[in-house]
């Protein structure tokens, strides 16, 4: 049995955990290659044009995987941490995948509702029929669930908070150009992935109103960093529903606190040049702002 994991969407958060988990269960895993133009072009043809970019990318990856493996692993994450939902498209992608490649290969989609680890234990039990083995594999894979990254700030450089979902920012096809443009303009970048889970999942202030898991993380990261950075850049994929609302709320809060806020809306037609121009203009704003505040001192 070969299990294929698409290198898109949830892979960037749970991918290493899943790979370790399946390896310890004794199942071979195949991960699709990094997103490129060809994969995206295939994905574009498979779904309606209105759907957001990450979903289109997943569909491209599914097409790549379907001939190479006999089972594709794509969990249905409905609810996590009691009462926190994932986005409708993340729930629906499993059904889209079933309709798209369901004829050629099997789709393994455990429904994850509230208890992430127990759902995986049941999955392991289902695959191996051996509770001891499933538990052992799970225990060995658990340390990889913590995707904590560290980044060291260069104190001399102005700091920027790149605010976007992990599946946008860590997918090099989407995030690389934006990160490179900021670094080129002399910024130090921080993202939400470096923060602790307790900060990201806290339900203080406005964050308790947000019932989407990953949006709450975004808002908490924004709130935590608001006074610590010189500017915030919010990257939204066109058609993303939750971001259109939470992005607006963050925009209002940033305006109240007089923090420069840039909203980049990306889709498959976004050109690198256009992005770079906007980032350059934004960096000029931040530099002027720090210059004038220094003068006033």
């Amino acid at each position: 049995m070969k299990i294929g994991i698409p290198r898109a969407l949830f892979y960037f958060r749970y991918g290493r955990f899943w790979q370790q988990f399946f390896n310890h269960l004794g199942i071979e895993t195949v991960v699709s290659p990094k997103t490129n133009k060809d994969l995206l072009d295939i994905g574009l043809k498979k779904v309606s044009s209105e759907i957001c970019l990450p979903i289109k990318i997943v569909c491209g990856h599914l097409e790549w995987l379907k001939d190479k493996v006999d089972t594709i692993f794509l969990p249905r994450i409905v609810e996590l941490n009691h009462g926190l939902y994932s986005c409708p498209k993340m729930i629906g992608i499993v059904d889209i995948a079933r309709m798209q490649v369901g004829n050629q290969c099997q789709i393994l989609s455990p429904k994850i509702k509230n208890n992430f680890i127990f759902a995986h234990f049941l999955l392991g039990l289902n695959l191996t029929k051996n509770p001891y083995k499933a538990r052992k594999a799970l225990n060995k894979a658990l340390p990889y669930l913590n995707n904590h990254k560290t980044n060291v700030f260069d104190n001399h450089k102005p700091k920027i908070l790149l605010l976007s979902h992990f599946y946008n920012l860590e997918d090099d096809f989407i995030g690389q150009d934006i990160k490179a443009a900021f670094i080129e303009n002399g910024f130090a970048i921080t993202t939400k992935e470096v923060l602790d889970q307790t900060i990201l999942n806290s339900a203080n202030g406005f964050a308790k109103n947000i019932q989407w898991i990953y949006e709450r993380e975004l808002y908490n990261a924004f709130h935590y960093n608001l006074t610590k950075v010189d500017g915030v850049c919010d990257i939204i994929s066109f058609g993303c529903g939750p971001d259109s609302l939470v992005g607006e709320i963050m925009n209002q809060h940033a305006n109240q606190n007089k923090v420069p806020f840039l909203q980049l809306i990306i889709d498959e037609h976004t050109s690198k040049t256009g992005l770079v121009t906007r980032i350059e203009a934004f960096s000029e704003i931040i530099k002027r702002k720090t210059y004038t505040t220094d003068l006033h001192k």
């Binding site: 309606s48 209105e50 498209k89 059904d95 889209i96 309709m99 058609g239 529903g241 259109s244």
Partner: peptide
């Protein structure tokens, strides 16, 4: 409505259904 999240998922299902039952489908966003 344009960019409605749940209906976009339903749209994919309806397209498949339209193929399966060969009934025409008109999607208006």
């Amino acid at each position: 409505p344009f960019t409605c999240m749940p209906e976009n998922i339903a749209f994919e299902a309806l397209q498949k259904m339209s193929d399966d039952y060969s009934v025409p489908l008109l999607s208006l966003s």
